[in-house]
Design a protein around this nucleic acid. Structure first.
Lengths: 194, 194, 194, 194
DNA sequence: AATGAATGAGTCTTCATTCAT
DNA sequence: CATGAATGAAGACTCATTCAT
């Protein structure tokens, strides 16, 4: 958040404008000129901060991903049952998405897109999912979670998270609805629980 | 399949070439000239059959979606427990994806992209998910499935399906692995089962 | 008129449609496909009757010009003073324009345009103005008209006619107004009269 | 002249090249690439200065019209009889046309063409003819000019001016011929004089 | 004679990127 | 660092014309 919103920082303004425009019009649908305009800088300035439009996208991707990862790490809870800790994490992740709809939408769109090089996507995934992988392994050893192939479970976690945030972004009025929130966790948890 | 591959049908050849190229290079990354060339027709021919590049994409989207829907409908089973029927359907859908990797990848990329107008995406979803909705409602009434909000469950089904096919497409060698296949269904089913 | 309106004659329908469309959108702004469509024929049919789009325009130009010339010739009066005969001719020409607004507008637009080869324009002018030239010469010899250079007077006649018809086409409600009609002739006649 | 010919001003060079090429090949017959080439700039530069080819034409039209209007205003004479002042104005206008044949030819072609939106044409006409309208009204009140409908007289003035300049442009050798010049004014003046 | 699918050269316009100021 | 005019390659789309039926 900090990185994308420093008001006087032109670099930050450019990233922020790009996030917004890429979401609305896609990567190729957004011209560097329009990003510069939205950021309130000259067209040339963009290229002082980023060597190319693609580099801008990649930087943006990594920046947003890092913010998400930091956010998750900050809310990681070390006490309680695995289910309680997972619930806290799930709710925290959902809340982050609700508080940062632009960034979440950005993920929805670019997580599977060709515009982001495969290596970058994988790298980003592993950074975040490594975290989850440890928790799943722990749950399997303690007999709380099914002993299914880990890669499949990770992909499933990711897919369910995307689905849940998609649902809440499409129905913002349910963002604070305890029933739906709990239901989303229930689906997530029961998929893997024994 | 039939629709996209009639050898002598220029329209079909164009759709087929577009499917392939859009997958590899994205919508904006693919020029109409390259589509025409890959299809073995003149550039003007593309515009004789489709009023614009966007219309071509939309036609392609609807065509592929229809093929998938037809495919699912053809394998719908009417007998057995709900779980058995769901498993048949799930395996059938996974197999369709494995047999049509191009079309599945196309879905992965364009199901959430801005390139496809929202109305079209929703229309496509409803066509397919309406089917699933009925099964879920039935399961809830017979006490087999959790009574969670339906729209959330549908989005979850969709998300899990995308995740599973993503996994199998990324690991083609596991496409016929019974364990992984069953595991993917297990995750899917337990998410919703009581 | 006959030539442009034979209902069942595809050639005539094409000319008629072209006249209308060229007026509204210009020569280059009108596609042969749109002409064919408006004429109710296939695109290929146009090229059975005219070797090219340019040839169609030229044929149209000559046809319309011929109609106008025939119309003038038909109303030429041989008796009375030169002024009376000129007035009859002027009124007749104005009326022709009012009765054939499409054709008149066509003249306004293409009489000075590059689209019509110079040779064709000159040929058309001479066909019609030759007629007028004789009358002017007669008037000069009988001392009724100024002895100014003939080419200048002819160009002036043409210019005044275009101006008058432009005025009446822009103000159709005055088409039958005797005062304005007489005024237009007065301007025309006094320019040249002694 | 100044506006269209500043050597170092790329915008001016583009306008100047466009004037020349539109005259020779028409609006649709002239490609933006050829304009840029003739102006010695890159194709993109044209669109940096004008949003579209049409906007370029309109700017050109208004610019040339303004030059003509300024030129007329600069030579307006306030003393002498109405006829003398009209003669000065007429000769001045004719001379302007002879000195700026490109611009005059541009008017001949685009003053009645569909390429220029009607509103623009009318606006341009009124700017120039408002001037003339005042003089005609004055002449009518002082009993020098016929009391014919003003709009008709204005259109007639315009038509005669176009005809006269057409004549002189087609016969450049007569541009300095006093007899023809006086003759052209005589036709113009007698049309309206009592 | 009539059709309309097919052609491909040509058009306008966009846009990432550079560079002199 | 910042600017924005300039660049020119590339793209979507048009359209006069042909030709097999």
């Amino acid at each position: 958040m900090a990185i994308l919103q420093k008001g006087t920082d032109k670099r930050g303004q450019i990233l922020s404008a790009a996030l917004h425009l890429f979401n609305g019009q896609g990567f190729h649908g957004t011209s560097t000129a329009s990003i510069a305009k939205a950021a309130g800088v000259a067209t040339g300035t963009l290229f002082h901060h980023f060597p190319s439009k693609e580099a801008l996208l990649e930087t943006l991707f990594l920046t947003v991903k890092q913010e998400f990862a930091d956010s998750l790490a900050a809310m990681a809870i070390l006490e309680g049952s695995l289910e309680d800790r997972a619930r806290q994490l799930w709710f925290g992740a959902i809340d982050w998405a609700l508080e940062n709809p632009d960034k979440q939408q950005f993920f929805q769109q670019f997580s599977m897109s060709v515009e982001i090089p495969l290596s970058l996507r994988e790298q980003a995934m592993q950074g975040i999912l490594g975290f989850i992988g440890v928790m799943i392994a722990e749950g399997q050893q303690s007999g709380v979670l099914s002993r299914l192939p880990l890669p499949l479970m990770l992909e499933n976690c990711h897919g369910q998270y995307l689905a849940a945030t998609r649902f809440f972004l499409d129905h913002p009025e349910l963002g604070n609805d305890a029933e739906h929130k709990e239901a989303s966790f229930r689906l997530f948890w029961h998929a893997m629980a024994l």
